[in-house]
Simulated scan of single mutants.
Amino acid sequence: MGAQWKHKGRTENAAAKGKIFTKLVKEIMVAAKGGPDPSTNARLRMAVDAAKKASMPRDTLERAIKKGSGQLDEQVNYEVVTYEGFAPHQVPVIVECLTENKNRTATNIRVLFRKGQLASSGAVSWDFNRLGVIEASPPAADTDAETAAIEAGAQDVEKGEEGGARFLTAPTDLDAVGRALTGQGWTVSASNLAWIAKNPVQLEGEARGEVESFLEAIDEDDDVQNIFVGLR
């Protein structure tokens, strides 16, 4: 929860899957501005890997790359816009958007933050660390994650879901560490840059429900790409 807000069971229906594809297409298009070849464009490679894991159709993926790299006549220029603020109960939140219309996005975000508090740039991010996060499963049940982290050059490792591990890296080391882990036999399921809260808030019961409802409403906005929240 402290790393990134995620819906559980989000891929269970077609509408949810379509929403995921929309976010992935945007990320691919922005990443492809740095070049259409995933082998020489680390950001694009991570976006393509995520799209493949989500079972995105190949023609959709290839079209997004061509569109983002300027190989097609139709041009859409997405910009990254980041908002900082607080959910109910003063829970810190960072919202990353990809948009072709910043005025529309700003208006929508202001409305969505009415149940919380929108803050100025830097008011929240100082209490987060910008890190690379890799989620991976080991080649064998007895594989030592800490040894793997050291050998791959990760800064830290945490217990992940279903016997997996969560490796934390410097932002510039994300791609190299992911490749190193793959070379050790680990199966990487996710690799991205994230904001990790230094002092996440602990909430239970009704208060936690209010925060989760607030986050779900923000996540439904088409321009919202990622939400990072300081909540245990």
Rank of each mutant, 00 (worst) to 15 (best):
Ala3Asn: 06
Gln4Val: 11
Gly9Arg: 02
Arg10His: 10
Thr11Lys: 12
Thr11Asn: 10
Glu12Met: 05
Glu12Arg: 12
Glu12Leu: 12
Ala16Asp: 10
Lys17Gly: 00
Gly18Ala: 12
Lys19Gln: 07
Phe21Thr: 00
Leu24Met: 03
Lys26Met: 06
Ile28Pro: 00
Ile28Gln: 04
Met29Pro: 01
Met29Arg: 09
Val30Arg: 05
Ala31Arg: 04
Pro36Ile: 01
Thr40Glu: 13
Arg45Tyr: 13
Ala47Val: 13
Val48Met: 12
Asp49Asn: 15
Ala50His: 12
Ala51Arg: 08
Lys52Ala: 12
Lys52Trp: 01
Ala54His: 09
Arg58Ser: 14
Ala64Ile: 06
Lys66Trp: 01
Leu72Val: 14
Leu72Arg: 08
Gln75Tyr: 02
Gln75Asn: 05
Gln75Ile: 10
Asn77Thr: 08
Thr82Pro: 04
Glu84Asn: 06
Val93Asn: 09
Val95Glu: 02
Val95Lys: 04
Glu96Ile: 08
Cys97Arg: 02
Thr99Pro: 05
Lys102Phe: 00
Arg104Leu: 06
Arg104Glu: 08
Thr107Cys: 00
Ile109Leu: 11
Ile109Pro: 01
Val111Met: 08
Phe113Tyr: 12
Arg114Met: 06
Lys115Pro: 00
Gly116Ile: 02
Gly116Phe: 03
Leu118Ile: 04
Ser120Gln: 13
Ser121Gly: 00
Ala123His: 03
Ser125Tyr: 06
Asp127Met: 11
Arg130Trp: 08
Leu131Met: 14
Pro138Cys: 08
Ile150Thr: 15
Glu151Asn: 14
Ala154Glu: 11
Gln155Val: 09
Asp156Met: 10
Val157Arg: 04
Glu158Leu: 15
Lys159Asn: 13
Lys159His: 08
Lys159Thr: 15
Glu161Trp: 03
Glu161Asp: 15
Arg166Thr: 15
Asp173Pro: 04
Ala176Val: 07
Arg179Gln: 14
Ala180Pro: 03
Ser191Pro: 00
Asn192Phe: 14
Leu193Ile: 13
Lys198Asp: 11
Glu204Tyr: 01
Ala207His: 01
Arg208Asn: 01
Glu212Met: 07
Asp221Leu: 15
Asp223Ile: 11
Val224Gln: 09
Asn226Thr: 12
Val229Pro: 04
